[in-house]
Simulated scan of single mutants.
Amino acid sequence: MREIVLDTETTGFDPETGDRIVEIGAVELMGHMATGKTYHQYINPERAMPEEAFQVHGLGDEFLRDKPKFAEVGQAFLDFIGDAKLVIHNAAFDIKFLNAELGWMGLPKIPWEQAIDTLEIARKRFPGSPASLDALCRRFAIDNSSRTLHGALLDSEILAEVYLELIGGRQPDFGLQSMSGAGGTEAGEAWTPPPRPSPLEPRLSEKEAAAHAEFVSKLGDSALWLKS
């Protein structure tokens, strides 16, 4: 199962009042394991960056001026996510902005059913407890010390770890899909056990084997144990 852990950074809170996306970061998971594939794009919002947004993201007008506009990268973004489930913290916020930008381009919007909201999952698992990304990092002992500013790709990488904890453990497949060598496989491939270097010692005693043979001999020629 392919999933995309996604985060956006914006100039504000509402695209209907002129706010725009300035950064998208996404991390691909396959079978709940990171594949190493990512999507990261800074975007020129075509408007001045408000001071309060600059304080949160550290992205200023001069830095964003030569970055592509959303209209130039929207299709590539859709191609990357495809029909994968989108794992987002407070999905309503990001989907609202993404669909506004896609709508202005005349591109298909993202259906709500495609989103998995980790904020909603956290609130159901830990009712009454703080459910911010930082709070969940503290709960699950996930290192987010590099998160001094909000950055879409970094937040996506952190959220991927939080998501796997929320659904039952950081390595729900016990790491089998990421093993390599000595019977392991590369990520995304089916894992098969390696052959034993030597057979196991028999656990059946001679007396038990003789009793079984006597029992089978009484079943007739059509007995399953007599067929090769």
Rank of each mutant, 00 (worst) to 15 (best):
E165K: 12
I116G: 04
T148P: 05
R147S: 04
L164W: 01
D143L: 09
I121C: 07
E165T: 01
V87M: 03
E113G: 11
F140I: 10
C137W: 06
L86E: 05
P130N: 05
K109E: 13
P127D: 08
L98G: 00
A92Q: 10
R138Q: 13
S129A: 15
R147W: 08
G103L: 02
A92I: 07
R123E: 12
D94Y: 06
E113L: 15
A160W: 01
G106M: 15
A152I: 06
S156C: 13
A92S: 12
F97A: 02
G106L: 12
D143K: 07
A92L: 06
R125I: 03
T118D: 02
L159V: 06
E120W: 13
R138C: 05
F140E: 14
F97M: 00
S132H: 01
L119N: 00
L133I: 12
S129F: 14
P111R: 07
A84D: 04
R125E: 14
P111L: 08
E161G: 07
D94N: 10
Y163K: 09
A91I: 01
C137F: 06
P108T: 04
R147Q: 10
K109T: 14
F126A: 11
A131R: 09
A84I: 01
I142F: 07
L136V: 13
E120C: 13
S129N: 13
R123D: 04
